[in-house]
Each structure stands twice: as structure tokens, then as C-alpha cells.
Write a protein that binds this DNA or RNA. Structure first.
Lengths: 210, 210
DNA sequence: TCCAAGAACTGAATGACATTCAGTTTGAGG
DNA sequence: CCTCAAACTGAATGTCATTCAGTTCTTGGA
């Protein structure tokens, strides 16, 4: 029993990442046995070593895929909101929070990875996070051009903005006493408070309705 | 070779927690082998099972100890700042951030614990976090009595305040490209921005100097 | 069409650990 | 002094990750 039929050529790498993300969500924890990933894919554990140097590399790939998905969701909102930077900041933040609350374990893998993943060695990983941040900065810059946050240091405010949302999402994910709806309400409340503060700096009469 | 001399009666439990925290910091990761904790304490791994149900219980104890230390540091600032609630908010936040940046792995264990720790089952753990939050709320309440944040919903602002600082600290801990000083500067900048916003709502003439 | 080379897997072996268990030694009460 | 229970220990078990020596397809040339 060895080399399989030609049908499933390069599927293993893609499927392994996919199944890893699924198992991550299912088990709610990082320590997914390689064996179960292999079983879900339909091969044996050693076969995965032909596609990933080791388990950490597989988790890194899952993490990168997570950043890709998050970026895509934020980018979709970005395009849909062209011309309304304030609306983008709000709905982009909602999208970010929704992604985090719907994929809590993946989100934790993205933003609180075990150091042994060797994330710092991989230029890609910090790049992916940077792309998400740059999308936020673009939104802030546009908002500033529309009269909000006059004279503010965007780098500084951008980081604070991100910190607030990341913090709210992290604390809510961690709090097991809350159900999904309560986590969402709590996070949304923080985002709304943040948007109110930005709205207060801008041209009057901007409704906060979502 | 079995039961040791009477000298080190109940030291093992205490020392195990201490050494675990030390090894956590040294290895920068949660998966500290029980064997190394035992070795550091001066016993064998099975001996630890007489004091902790399992490794997760030991990590939970280390986590609780972390909350205790954080609370003590914040409480010290609190007592030292009686009568200056705004100053307490600022210096208490600095103390919080300093604790997190100086004990990054312990902080991660406290706020992004692996679900398998079974933290949710333990009423103590959420209690410890709640005590830290209540200290913040007391500071906000006092600040409000001194004229800041007039009419604000403190529960809501308290959570946003905590989210911002926790987020800034988490993102800075995670960013391996920054050295310690840079992480501190970045975090301090977020805290200062937050304090400026609160100061802006209060009685005029409050200097922001630290 | 047939064949050699190597790609892509597999089963079995190795090594870390956590956890359990059957002793073994020592302190304390009678 | 003697018995008992507490507090440990060494050895055994089980769960992974990772490695390795085969084994079986696929492919490109004769």
C-alpha cells in the first residue's frame, strides 16, 4: 500500500489546512493531533510531512489562511463602502469582530500563538497582520479627509483603535460565562462607543445608526 | 528511597507554583515539562500529584498566583494614590502594563489560557479577574465624582478602558519585532491617549504630565 | 509497449511527556 | 517498640510527534 491514484494530486496540503481549521474550531484548542488531521484528510500522519516540515508549519499555514480570510472579509466591506469611510470603519470593525467571535480558536491562533510556532521567523505572518492594519489605516486616513479626527496622528490612533477592538474581542472570547449573543452585544457596544467618539470629532449630523 | 525528612513539610506546593512561573518565563511557553518543575523543586514528577490533581491544576494555580500578584501591584498603587483618582487610573494602568510586559508568558496564561485548563469550571479564576476589574471601576467611579466622565455609563466605559489596555498589551507582547523598550513606549502611548480623552471630559487644567 | 527512476505514501520504530501504580520509607500515636 | 498512614519513588502505560526503511504508482524515454 503506497502511492495513491493520480486523482488527489495536490489536494493534501490544501485539505490539511482546511481540516486543521475545522478541527481547531471543533476541539476549541490548539493541540489537534496530527493523526486526526491525517484521518480527516484521508491519509496517514507521516504523509503530511511531505507537505509541511512539521506540525508547527501546518499550524502556521492555518494561521496564514486565517489572516487571508480575515483580510478578505474586511476588504469586501472596504469595497462595498467606497465613499463612506466612516461607515467602513464601523462595518469593517463589525466584520473583524464577527470573524473573531465566529472563529475564536483560529483568532487565538492568529493573535496569541504559542511561541514555538516560530512565527517571528516567518516574514509572511507579520506581513498578513500588517495588511489588516493597513486597511484600517486607509479607513482612518479617508475619514480624516472627510473631516473626522482633525490633526490626529493616525499611526497612534490606528493602533489604539485596533487595540480596543482586539482587546474587547479577546476578553469576550475568553469569558466562558457569556453565550455567543452576549459576547457579540458586549463587543458591539465597545465598537459603538469608539465610533461615537470618532463621530464627535467630525462634521456634525452624522447619524450613528447601523 | 521514599518519604523525605520533615524539614520541607508543605513547601512543595508553594515552590512548585513559584518554579512553574519561573520556568514559564524562562521558556516563554506554556508547555513546561512537569519533570523540569519537579527537578527545580527537588522532587520527582509523581510527587507533584500529591499536591495537584494534574498538570492543568498546577498551571491554574500559577495563573491564580499571577492574578494575585497583579492585584497586589494595582492595589499598592491604589492606596498610594488615595485622593487622586485620575492619577490612580493613569498609574494603575502603567502598573498593569508593566506587569504584563514584564511577565508576558504569565500574562498570556492569565488572559489567553488553553481551554483545556478548565478555567471556566473554577469560580476562583474568573473571580480574580473580576477583582482587578472592580479596582478599575472604583477608580472610574471616583474619577466621575471628581468631575470626569460626567454621566457616563461606567460599566460600559470600564470595559472599553480595560479592552484598550489589554489589547495594546497583548498586541505588543505578541510583536516579536519590537524590543522591550519599544513595547513599553507603544503601550504607554496608548494609555496616555486614553488618559487625554478622559482628561478632556473633566475639570479643565488637569496636567497630563506623568 | 516496456522499463528505470524517483515521487508519494505506508507501517513500524523512537522518543517526549503526562499520568498511574505498586511498593518503600519515615513520622506519630499508642 | 510497633503499627499505620502519609509522602514519595521507580517503573510501567498511553498518547502523540517525528523519523525511516520499504513499497507502489507515475512518468519520461527506449
Amino acid at each position: 500500500m503506497a502511492r495513491p491514484r493520480k486523482e488527489q494530486e495536490l489536494d493534501i496540503a490544501r485539505r490539511a489546512v482546511e481540516e486543521t481549521i475545522r478541527l481547531l474550531a471543533q476541539q476549541g484548542d490548539f493541540d489537534v493531533p496530527l493523526t486526526s488531521v491525517a484521518q480527516a484528510v484521508g491519509c496517514t500522519a507521516p504523509a503530511l510531512y511531505g507537505h509541511f516540515r512539521n506540525k508547527n508549519a501546518l499550524l502556521r499555514a492555518a494561521r496564514d489562511e486565517g489572516f487571508g480570510r480575515l483580510y478578505n472579509e474586511k476588504f469586501a466591506v472596504f469595497e462595498q463602502m467606497r465613499g463612506d469611510p466612516f461607515g467602513y470603519l464601523r462595518d469593517g470593525s463589525y466584520a473583524y469582530a464577527r470573524f473573531a467571535l465566529e472563529n475564536p480558536t483560529l483568532y487565538r491562533l492568529m493573535f496569541s500563538p504559542p511561541p514555538k510556532l516560530g512565527v517571528s521567523d516567518d516574514p509572511w505572518s507579520s506581513e498578513a497582520g500588517r495588511q489588516v492594519l493597513s486597511l484600517l489605516l486607509t479607513g482612518l486616513r479617508s475619514s480624516q479627509e472627510h473631516g473626522y479626527l482633525p490633526g490626529a496622528d493616525l499611526q497612534r490612533y490606528g493602533f489604539m483603535f485596533w487595540s480596543t477592538i482586539h482587546g474587547a474581542v479577546s476578553l469576550n472570547i475568553q469569558n466562558r460565562l457569556l453565550d455567543h449573543a452576549a459576547k457579540w452585544d458586549s463587543t458591539q457596544s465597545v465598537i459603538d462607543a469608539l465610533m461615537e467618539m470618532i463621530a464627535a470629532t467630525g462634521p456634525a449630523k452624522h447619524p450613528i445608526t447601523s
